[in-house]
């Protein structure tokens, strides 16, 4: 399960965001907010996961489960959380669609 999450995080999430960014101008405000939330969330996750991977650069063990969780799930969670926050913000701000 961890491996699948990592693969989806590495390849699936950015490709999904790239797909969501197509015909961007004709998309609804909510769609654009979700897209930007996902992009920003994924960008932060890339930095966070790299930091978790390499700081400090010692082999992770069973004694460091949080580190492994961040590494395997961070990218998916980052993109998902960002997109979710984008959708929430869009609903919160309101206003006309388009």
């Amino acid at each position: 399960m961890n491996g699948i999450a990592l693969l989806v995080g590495i390849f699936g999430a950015p490709l999904l965001l790239l797909g969501a960014g197509r015909r961007f101008r004709s998309r609804s405000r909510r769609h654009r907010a979700v897209f930007w939330g996902g992009v920003i969330g994924y960008g932060i996750a890339v930095l966070g996961v790299n930091l978790a991977l390499m700081l400090e650069p010692v082999m992770w063990t069973e004694a460091t489960p949080l580190r492994a969780a961040i590494v395997f799930w961070g990218l998916v969670a980052g993109a998902g959380a960002g997109a979710g926050l984008g959708a929430l913000r869009s609903a919160w701000v309101g206003g006309p669609e388009g």
């Binding site: 890339v46 790299n50 990218l75």
Partner: peptide, 22 residues
């Protein structure tokens, strides 16, 4: 160019940083 570039964002960052550290 676009799709391949986006798909390997994380890998390139991780491999580059570990390469510099090594």
């Amino acid at each position: 160019h676009l799709w391949v570039g986006v798909a390997i964002t994380f890998l390139v960052v991780a491999i580059s940083v570990t390469g510099i550290l090594l």
